[in-house]
Design a binder for these strands. Structure first.
Lengths: 198, 198
DNA sequence: CCGTAAAAAGAACGTTTGTTCATATACAAA
DNA sequence: TTTGTATATGAACAAACGTTCTTTTTACGG
């Protein structure tokens, strides 16, 4: 049975499911194997050890979820740019796989140093830098009030993270998410009202 | 050696330390006992089982951190009220014990249903209701623009949570928190600029 | 059809886990 | 001083843990 790359992927996916639900410590090698349909010893044909599985998952968390081309150009339109950003953000937040990875992130944030650093740098800094660029353009165009673009980007993004967490928590217990479905758009409206000129 | 209530508290405190650092699964009964200076079997003289220790900790997480009297009255002053709120919030965020409990919260948020529900209700709803009351007054007084007070409260609080998480993460790896020390006040300034009238 | 190599199974290992139980010790009340 | 109770110990348990090893099964290239 050579070259069944399929299995390796199944292992990671089962691991994501389990770590999202029960954390890294709760996702035992035996549980992962059972979910895949193999014995625990077979896992080690694909990964050196349990830690290696986690490492591969952490890599996936920060794969660029969406990128925006021509930020400078689009930013000139003001609010529609933020709307577009939110659409992309919601796409990620509501994506099943990405949501699981989000849970893994929260679960292991305080246990895994590499995860922490990636979070503060990638997840955080990257989006902030991109957005601050856009806000800078909007200020130059006289669309929004003058302020520190970096801080403004942070103020725009921070609630998104919180809403995403709320969404994730609500979904677990299968509670209704209707109150949360429009919250992202409302945020854009509120924010634009906060910074727009005229 | 009857009535040494002291030990019971030592156990909880050691458990908080360990769960904050290594999560519930990582904080074994033996580790907790060793931290207290007793054997693992002695733990069971004070708590029925490991779960009972966690339950007692969860109770502490949502003990009202600070309460504000005369909200209606103070809210009329506008921005100074928000300043005061932030001072109280920072007091909690920078408190050593409370910070540990915050880590416990994040660590176990996805594992413990009771914790999730308390978070969404207490942590969230309670602060929001209180703040929305204040914003409602401010709107009546013509200090801030008219909007849904509940949503405005959410917009004010969400970044605080995110900043608190950032603070906690940064502290773990003993990185510099100077960039974060003034972020709470900057948030108030930004927010007030966003909603004030005139 | 056979040989090879990848992937699986199965058993075993040394630890650690949460919990129980019988026993010992210390202290307050009688 | 005796008795009772709260608290500690130390040994033991069954189960689960990550990992390693040997052996068997499988699939493909020659």
């Amino acid at each position: 049975m050579p070259k069944q790359e399929n299995t390796k992927q199944k292992i990671v996916e089962a691991a994501i499911d389990l770590i999202a639900e029960q954390g890294y410590k709760g996702a035992s090698v035996r549980k992962i194997a059972r979910a895949v349909g193999i014995r625990e010893s077979a896992i080690y044909n694909h990964y050196e050890n349990k830690e290696a599985i986690l490492k591969s998952i952490i890599g996936q968390i920060f794969e660029t979820p969406f990128e925006m081309k021509e930020i400078e150009e689009k930013a000139k339109r003001g609010k529609p740019f933020l709307r577009e950003f939110i659409v992309a953000y919601k796409l990620v937040a509501f994506d099943k796989k990405k949501e699981k990875l989000f849970r893994v992130l929260i679960n292991e944030l305080f246990q895994n140093r590499a995860l922490r650093e990636s979070f503060l740098q990638e997840f955080h800094q990257k989006d902030i830098k991109r957005l601050s660029q856009a806000f800078f353009v909007m200020m130059q165009e006289g669309l929004i009030r003058s302020d520190d673009p970096m801080f403004m980007a942070q103020e725009f993004l921070a609630p998104l993270f919180y809403f995403r967490l709320q969404l994730s928590l609500t979904k677990i217990d299968k509670q209704s998410t209707t109150a949360l479905s429009t919250i992202f758009e409302r945020h854009v409206d509120f924010f634009w009202e906060s910074v727009k000129i005229g």
